[in-house]
């Protein structure tokens, strides 16, 4: 392109004019060889990574215990629903119904029916309830004890269990 005064206005010929080969724009400078600052960047990224890994590890540990909720229903009504982590001390929970009594042991890592007045005692034979989805039913007392997840991701290895 030629200007009125005959000078070329393009970048290349600007070099011939002894001016800058690149116009003064908002371009970053061309630095194509490794520089000390790179080490800083890489170091920063590495540090951030390590911190994040720590954070997620700690978070994972806390979720493991806080994720499980024990829910006890009687006659279809929820009479207890608490985080298993709340029971750092194993606690006995008594339930009475018109057919008898039940004692459920609640602790932070497992829940089980300690004693029951029902004749078949199926609810006791089921054993310890640990994972989300585990449950014990006492039909004579019309009580259901189950572990539900509080919404955090839990990968279920099995879709259903045959007993």
């Amino acid at each position: 392109m030629r200007r009125k005064d005959g000078q070329s206005n393009t970048s290349a010929s600007a070099g011939a004019r002894g001016g800058k080969t690149r116009p003064d724009r908002d371009l970053p400078a061309r630095r194509f060889r490794f520089l000390p600052g790179d080490a800083v960047v890489i170091g920063a990224v590495a540090v951030v990574c390590v911190i994040l890994l720590l954070v997620t590890w700690i978070y994972g540990k806390s979720v493991e215990n806080r994720g499980r909720v024990v829910r006890i229903t009687q006659d279809g009504n929820v009479i207890l629903e608490r985080n298993m982590a709340d029971f750092s001390e194993p606690t006995e929970y008594r339930i009475t119904s018109d057919s008898g009594e039940m004692v459920i042991l609640l602790s932070s890592d497992k829940v089980y029916v300690k004693d029951s007045s029902c004749p078949d005692k199926i609810c006791m034979h089921v054993g310890e309830l640990k994972k989300s989805g585990d449950g014990a039913v006492c039909l004579p007392n019309r009580v259901v004890v189950q572990i539900v997840s509080s919404g955090t991701e839990e990968d279920q290895e099995v879709d259903v269990v045959a007993k």
């Binding site: 089921v126 054993g127 310890e128 099995v158 879709d159 259903v160 269990v161 045959a162």
Partner: peptide
Amino acid sequence: VILDLGGNVCAWSKSGTLNIGIVSPSEPS
């Protein structure tokens, strides 16, 4: 569809596999 009638399982999945666990008689949990 997964049906669980007190431990009696009947299941079907159109496009995926299903994992059906079988309880250990010596350790029902």
